[in-house]
């Protein structure tokens, strides 16, 4: 009789202990069993958020004041292109002019990248904000002196990029450099109106981003010399467009076969 009660007593304890263990071990036993996914489009059926709008408002007022100013008018739509594009020609030509103004030494040609021209310039009014969209980066103008040997790599780079079609990454915008690409061969390379000479060094104006090997422009690495102008590309573009406006010249660009792809 007494024996049985003791047994019950122990059994109770053991049971309680087991239950306690069970409880503790259950604590972390959440198992991932299922998932469901669906992404939401953010369209104009959604309203803006009132509280966020109150935070944004003072910034937007300041921004609009600066960015909505019309700084000139474009006669044409300008877009990047391959083997040449209106936008690339427009920007490279003006950066080339600017570099020649800034530097004491001659600047042979300009080379930029289409990936860095972030939006087309539309026909019509051009606002300061549009130029910020075109060139949002803080990149600066640099003049790099490279060897004729590296120039061969540069020419090859342009050739490879120019034969790619229908891609945002196709083409290399230049100014002051001309070449003909024919059946995977490059001919008639002219720099500053002189035939290319592989034994000469050349001074190229570009962005600091590209000069540091950006967009895999390895031919700019280990240059003979590098001249930092301290001027941002965007500031140069803005200054040029505003100057033209003062002279009552509207924006225009042409395709002139500088990189010519003969099929």
């Amino acid at each position: 009789m007494r024996h049985k009660t003791t047994m019950n007593y122990y059994l109770k304890h053991i049971l309680f202990f087991c239950l306690a263990i069970l409880l503790i071990s259950c604590k972390e036993q959440y198992k991932l069993t299922n998932s469901k996914s669906g992404n939401n489009e953010i369209n104009n059926e959604l309203s803006t958020n009132n509280f966020l709008e109150t935070i944004i408002l003072p910034y937007r007022i300041e921004l609009d004041l600066k960015m909505n100013e019309v700084i000139n008018t474009s006669l044409i739509d300008m877009e990047v292109g391959s083997p040449e594009g209106l936008l690339g020609n427009f920007v490279c030509d003006l950066i080339h002019i600017k570099a020649k103004e800034i530097s004491d030494k001659p600047v042979d040609f300009c080379l930029l990248n289409n990936g860095g021209l972030r939006t087309p310039l539309p026909k019509g009014e051009i606002t300061r904000g549009k130029i910020f969209e075109l060139m949002p980066f803080e990149n600066e103008i640099v003049i790099v002196e490279i060897s004729g040997k590296n120039m061969l790599d540069l020419i090859e780079y342009i050739k490879i990029k120019s034969v790619i079609m229908n891609s945002r990454k196709a083409g290399v915008p230049v100014s002051g450099l001309r070449m003909i690409i024919n059946d995977d061969k490059v001919s008639d390379v002219k720099i500053a109106n002189f035939a290319f000479d592989a034994n000469k060094n050349y001074r190229v104006v570009t962005s600091d981003y590209l000069a540091n090997g950006g967009d895999h422009m390895d031919f700019f690495l280990n240059p003979i010399s590098i001249e930092n102008t301290g001027m941002k590309l965007r500031d140069a573009i803005l200054a040029h467009i505003i100057n033209l406006n003062h002279e009552e010249i509207e924006l225009n660009a042409t395709l002139d076969g500088r990189i010519y792809y003969a099929e």
Binding site: L32, S35, N40, I42
Partner: peptide, 27 residues
């Protein structure tokens, strides 16, 4: 998962957890 760019999309994944071990399919 990825939600495009320029705040054009909000990605969403719901996960369901079950305290029991067995798999429940259509939670």
């Amino acid at each position: 998962n990825q939600a495009g760019w320029a705040a054009l999309s909000l990605g969403r994944v719901d996960f369901y957890f079950n305290r029991e071990k067995e798999r429940i399919d259509d939670l």
